[in-house]
Nucleic acid binder design. Sequence first.
DNA 1: AATAAAATTTAGGTTTGTCTAAAAATAAGT
DNA 2: ACTTATTTTTAGACAAACCTAAATTTTATT
Lengths: 221, 221
Amino acid sequence: MNFTISEENYIKAIFHLQQGDAKVTTNELADRLQTKPASVTDMLKKLKAKKLLDYEKYQAFSLSEQGKKIALTVVRKHRLWEYFLVNKLDFGWDEVHEIAEELEHINSALLIEKLDAFLEFPKFDPHGDPIPDCNGKMEQARQINLIDLEPGKLAEVSAVGSQSSELLELLKHRNIGIGTILEVLRKFGFDHSIELKIKKVPAFSISQQLAQTLFVKPLIN
Amino acid sequence: MNFTISEENYIKAIFHLQQGDAKVTTNELADRLQTKPASVTDMLKKLKAKKLLDYEKYQAFSLSEQGKKIALTVVRKHRLWEYFLVNKLDFGWDEVHEIAEELEHINSALLIEKLDAFLEFPKFDPHGDPIPDCNGKMEQARQINLIDLEPGKLAEVSAVGSQSSELLELLKHRNIGIGTILEVLRKFGFDHSIELKIKKVPAFSISQQLAQTLFVKPLIN
DNA sequence: AATAAAATTTAGGTTTGTCTAAAAATAAGT
DNA sequence: ACTTATTTTTAGACAAACCTAAATTTTATT
């Protein structure tokens, strides 16, 4: 049961995109992995053959139970290494992603258990994302204010700070609700407005006021 | 100037086999990397094209200055990670080789400098091998008694404990001298004899007495 | 419901690193 | 020195992971 770096990257990407049990499409995945849809199709067939993916051609897909397990071990490794880099090697939280992206593919269960012990079993990584334990269980992601979400990160809307009908009207217009997955593209210092991207919709901006009433759980990596 | 894992493994293997400026042959290298001579030839051409190798077809070869530099950075990474695994994660010195073999290919100069600082700039790894500094300089390898050399390790004979003519006669017969590169294949508890392998000569055994008068510098990894 | 648009897959090709089998060059033995 | 043996290289294939271009299926639009 050993996987190539590429396979692991695909599994992890699907895991983050499906977030729960949503289905993922070929184009979404190609987009996320900076590759072409045709390449994705090749890998989907391979992952299906290995029983890591529930997939029928031309249909959206999601990880099998087996696939989710693998994904969780990769996420665990990634987040433990990030914690190590920031808390032991004194990296900034914004410098560690790429390095952890390489370290997460090191193959040794014992290494990870010893690293976990050395770090004293942290529950959250430096970005606030929960670290799965060796059985794949993890705590609920920390909820943060949308205004504090870093650009480039995916997050799921988990709460709104008010029930006013004006707010709900605006959210409806923007097609934002609990469970909506969004990404912060840019933040503008001038008026603290935030440029967002939601799935297929073109990017749009929201005001500081709106961002402050929205709470999200970070999803990526 | 980034290299593939395979390229780095070839460079490192050549570095260890040439040890100084000796020439290395295709078969030796194939043997060490558990691969076929034909595959080695392919890689030699690639390394030559990248100016890392002094090589003319059908001739023995050695690393260029550039190639040696790369080799030293890989060795540095390998040994720092071994030190980390043993002294921070509590691995045994005999369990770390394979893991370090993967970790050494992680690409980040900053990571290695920070790791070095975190470990407080160790000069030797857990096997007693010197760790090159960031400029590729390293201390003389520690000399150990041949009787203490671990099976599977290559070492270079660096001193003999006596000048008696009987000893010299025996050494001459065995073709062992200062600079001879040997490998311990097995140790026999019964009489503490040691089975050795020298370059092309078939393996042979030496007595405990002889092993105790020979001092070596470990070479590998 | 028929057609246009978008998403997905197939077909065929590339690169990296490996292999086997055969050819060429070097080294060894008499 | 000449023939044999060994070493090394070439030629041609293969798997993994990617690509482009063309074909197919699904989705959207009128």
